[in-house]
Nucleic acid binder design. Structure first.
Lengths: 198, 198
DNA sequence: ATGATTAGAACGATCATTCGATCGAAACAA
DNA sequence: TTGTTTCGATCGAATGATCGTTCTAATCAT
C-alpha cells in the first residue's frame, strides 16, 4: 500500500493508520507510533517533519492507492453497464480488502487536519472524476436521466459506503448477491429503464 | 437542542459540540470548553464526571433530538409514498438546519470514543428502526422489491448523507428540486414501478 | 573516518483531573 | 428582624501525566 516509501516510512505510516483507525487521532501519539512501529521518535522526525505531515502523507498515499484500485480494470471498449458494475464492485472490494485505508479516508476526507493541498492532490488522483465521466456517457447514450453526474456519483458512493459501514459494524451481512442487488439498485435509481437489459 | 439539561450543562454541551465539529475531538480541550462556555473547569466536573462523559451525553442528546425531528410528522394514515418523502425530506432538513449535530453524529457514530451503551440507547430512540418499518409495509403492499428493509434504509441514508456532505463542503448546490430528485431516485432504486404513481 | 541513520533522554507546553477556598441563598435561632 | 449555620454551586490554581518536538550522542555503512 505504501510502495513508494522506504521501509522506515512504511512502518510509520502503517502503524499510524492502524492506531488512528481503531482508536482515534488523539490516541495515535508519537510515542505510541514509535513503540508500535519499532522506529524511535527521533528517527521518525528524520523522515517526517511533524505528526501532521505523517497524517497528510498517509492521506495522499491511500487516496492514490484507492484510485488505482477502483479504476484499474475499466476498459474503454467495455459497455457502460459493464464498467458501471465493475467500478462499484471494485469500491466494495476495496472496502472489504483494505478496511483501514477505506475508513481512514471516510473519516478524514472532510477533516481540517488534512491540508487543502493534500485534498487537491487527492482529487486529481482519485477515482470520482473518472467514474463521473462514465455517468456522463450514460446520459449521452440515453441510459441515465439528466442529472448532474457528480451528484449521482456522490449519491451512489454514499449508498455503498453505508452498506460497507453496516457490514464492518456487523449490523448486516454482505454477501455477493447483496452487493449485486445494491449495485443494481444504484443503477435503477438513475436509469431510464429498470434492470440490466443488455 | 438540550432542553432536558440545566443551563450550565447546556452551555458546556453546546460549546463542546461547536469545538468538536469545526476542529477535532483533540481540539476540544477542557480548558477551551471552560473558556468558551464560561464555566470553570472545576464546575464542569461538578456536572460531568469526565470529558468522555460530556461527549457521550452529547451523542445521546443529539440522537434523541434527531429521531424526534425526522419522525415528528409521520402519520399512520398517510400513504407510504407520502411518509417516505416526508421522512427523507426531514433528514435533509435536519442536515441543513442543524449541521453541527448532524456532522457530529456522522463522525462519531462509529467511533470507539462512544460507549456501546450510548449507542444502544441511541438505537432505541433513533429513527432508523421506524423508517425501516415503513419500508417493510412497502414490501408487503408490493411497492418495493423484496430486500431487507434495514439494508435499504442504510443505502438511502448513505445517499442522503453524501449529498448533504457535498452541500456542506460547497462541492455542489442543493436546491429543493435536487432534493426531490434525490428522494425520487431513492424510491426508484428499490421500487417495482418507476416514479411517483399515486 | 566521515556522513547518514538511529536512539532515547530531555524540554516546555498542554492535557484531563483534583482540590481547597469562596460565594450565595436558604434554614434556623435569637 | 438580625445573626448564624449550612450546603450546594462555583472558581481557578495546582498536579502529575503525557503531548509533540528537539537535541546530543551512539551506531552504522562505506
Amino acid at each position: 500500500m505504501f510502495d513508494r516509501y522506504n521501509k522506515v516510512q512504511q512502518a510509520v505510516l502503517e502503524t499510524t493508520l492502524e492506531l488512528i483507525v481503531d482508536k482515534e487521532l488523539q490516541a495515535a501519539s508519537m510515542s505510541l507510533i514509535a513503540k508500535n512501529s519499532g522506529v524511535s521518535t527521533g528517527n521518525i522526525y528524520h523522515y517526517f517533519s511533524s505528526k501532521e505531515d505523517i497524517v497528510n502523507e498517509l492521506y495522499k498515499a491511500i487516496v492514490l492507492f484507492n484510485g488505482e484500485f477502483v479504476t484499474r480494470d475499466l476498459r474503454e471498449g467495455d459497455s457502460i453497464q459493464t464498467r458501471f458494475r465493475l467500478a462499484w464492485k471494485n469500491v466494495i472490494a476495496l472496502g472489504k480488502k483494505y478496511p483501514n485505508g477505506f475508513r481512514f479516508i471516510e473519516q478524514y476526507s472532510f477533516s481540517p487536519y488534512i491540508y487543502e493541498q493534500s485534498k487537491l492532490e487527492a482529487y486529481k488522483g482519485g477515482w470520482c472524476g473518472r467514474v463521473a465521466k462514465l455517468y456522463g456517457e450514460a446520459i449521452e447514450q440515453g441510459l441515465f436521466i439528466g442529472m448532474e453526474p457528480r451528484f449521482m456519483v456522490q449519491m451512489h458512493y454514499g449508498s455503498i459506503v453505508y452498506i460497507l459501514k453496516g457490514h464492518a459494524q456487523h449490523y448486516m451481512e454482505l454477501t455477493e448477491d447483496l452487493e449485486d442487488e445494491a449495485i443494481l439498485a444504484c443503477w435503477n435509481s438513475v436509469s431510464k429503464e429498470k434492470g440490466w437489459n443488455e
